[in-house]
Amino acid sequence: MNVLLSKVAFRAATSLLATALCPLAAIAETSSAPVVTERTRATLVVGADAAAPGAPIAVALRLQLKPGWHTYWRNPGDSGEPAVVTLRVGEREYKGPDMWPVPERIDLAGIVSYGYHGDVFLPTRVVAPAGVVPGATLPIEAKATWLVCEKVCVPEHGRFTVSLPMAVDVPATTSGSPFNPEPLQPLPAQFSKTAGGWNLRVPAASADAGGAIVAAYFFPERGDLIDHSAPQSLDRSGSGIVLGMDAAPAMAEAPSELRGILAITQQRADGTRQTRYFRIAAQP
């Protein structure tokens, strides 16, 4: 458990300094009863011990996976499928998850999927009904399906209820925890269609801060644009960087905006490397 927790804290810290300064242990948590399989401990969790009527709440499906197992990002890449969560809060229904943490590139003998190992938080934003009386308890119900894979793939599912006390004067949920991740910093970019796929161009001014770029990888939100298993080429010969991606076999029409997450690995003056993640909404 401690190992899992420190891994989460570490992952969050890579994109957000505030989390590093605020140990995870200090974040309040309200959890449902777990659904436990041979592979997964699943809970529905809120990163607070109370909420105010009418306030936004991030409710996460938390999947604690046994070593070796993974589940999937919103775009699962060349195999698998993303988790689906349906939440009921008062009279309203919400579909999630809607805040996906940065995925890993999972390469199995050359076939690439996008997903997560370890302790995975998949939050959905909901709103506490305004009419609930402080002092009462708000039940948040969810049904969820998710796929876990190791050497084999197993679809899993669960129903959860987390009971959240309603109170006045609750501090707003702080973002930057795994329960409510800070949005990634945006990076301006352009994209174009090429003969064999797509180019993503990031101008020098925005790309270079932090040291020489030694590697980059783009995770597209849509699953029908690039060949996920093909290598992405990094061209640093001009100003900024150009990332070349092969087209998906079923080449889609050019989208109005190419959305996704860009991982940039930079080498600092002292030789160490760091990878940072940026939100991309590239324009043609």
């Binding site: 003998a109 076939i111 050497k151 079923a250």
Partner: peptide, 12 residues
């Protein structure tokens, strides 16, 4: 040409 979905083939 459509998008295939499923389990990764367990290649050698």
């Amino acid at each position: 040409v459509t998008q295939a979905y499923g389990c990764t083939i367990k290649y050698k």
